[in-house]
């Protein structure tokens, strides 16, 4: 109905709901490919003397395009944080950022004319490649990991996991009351020596070799269970609580691991970008001053 059509026009078109890689029917992928194709074709057709390098007209053109792109791409961090009014879509920006950023590999290499050395120019190139590769890792992570993150999270939230672990700890302390000293010490391993996040390596690998809770579980099973005495029942209860805690810990740690991967590349991507901007400035200044 006409009424519906108007309502639909007032919001983003749901039927074309796309992620940042598909945005606009891969608009920015095509633009980036076209840019690369034109650059390569021109490179092959222009017969630079004595050999292709940054100092030719074509080289300057590519260099200017590359420098402008680098400048623009590094503004993404500001675009992301500045919530301005007006019609813009951060998704479109990210799409362009990814595809144009990758195209810089081609533009930068052609600009250098495959000519590398131990100097500030190649340093800038190397830093650029480093930034781009880290970015490609990030884009791949963004494309793949959210599904896993969502599947692991189910309907629970981080805050709920922490609450669950805290309440299981309270229950464990109560349940450990009837136990004897060595058994109670095993439970204390869980309540006092379990870290959820841990070091960067723990977070990234998802491995927690010294985890207090796993140690508590193996201690309790080593100390032996079974039988029907009240003491055995108390041990059973502790064991089941420890295993529930382990399940929650595992879930939380998988979440932390995925989040770590989703975030860690930025700790390379962004600082190296600043190094790149410095090297790029040195490159441009040196080229123009020491022609």
């Amino acid at each position: 109905m006409a009424r519906q059509a108007v309502r639909q026009a007032n919001r983003s078109d749901v039927r074309k709901h796309e992620g940042f890689l598909q945005h606009g029917g891969y608009r920015w992928l095509w633009i980036a490919l076209a840019l690369c194709a034109v650059s390569i074709a021109a490179y092959l057709m222009i017969d630079a003397e004595p050999r292709p390098r940054g100092g030719t007209i074509y080289g300057y053109t590519l260099g200017t395009i590359g420098a402008l792109l680098i400048g623009w791409l590094s503004l993404f961090g500001i675009r992301k944080r500045a919530i301005t009014t007006g019609v813009y879509s951060l998704k479109a920006w990210l799409s362009a950022h990814v595809y144009l950023g990758v195209s810089l590999l081609v533009i930068g290499t052609l600009h250098a004319g495959f000519h590398f050395g131990w100097n500030v120019h190649t340093l800038a190139y190397a830093l650029m490649v480093f930034v781009i590769v880290s970015g490609m890792f990030g884009a791949a992570a963004y494309a793949v990991l959210p599904k896993e993150l969502s599947a692991n999270r189910g309907e629970t939230t981080q805050r709920q996991w922490l609450e669950t672990i805290r309440s299981l700890d309270a229950l464990l302390r109560d349940a450990a009351q009837p136990l004897d000293r060595t058994e109670a010490d095993a439970v204390r391993l869980s309540t006092e020596q379990t870290t959820i996040g841990g070091s960067f390596l723990n977070r990234l690998s998802g491995q927690y070799p010294g985890c207090g809770n796993s140690r508590a579980i193996s201690e309790i099973s080593r100390l032996g269970r079974g039988g029907t005495s009240p003491h055995a029942a108390a041990l059973d209860l502790v064991d089941s609580l420890l295993k529930r805690k382990q399940a929650t810990l595992d879930q939380a740690r998988r979440h932390i691991r995925l989040r770590t991967i989703l975030e860690m590349w930025l700790y390379i991507h962004v600082p190296v970008t600043f190094a790149l901007l410095a090297a790029l400035t040195a490159h441009i200044v040196s080229v123009f001053f020491y022609w």
């Binding site: 519906q4 983003s12 998704k91």
Partner: peptide, 17 residues
């Protein structure tokens, strides 16, 4: 929606979605 970098946030009306 504007600030979502990956396109995950969408606003929909039920009859369309």
């Amino acid at each position: 929606v504007r600030a979502c970098p990956t396109g995950a946030a969408i606003r929909v009306s039920p009859e369309n979605f």
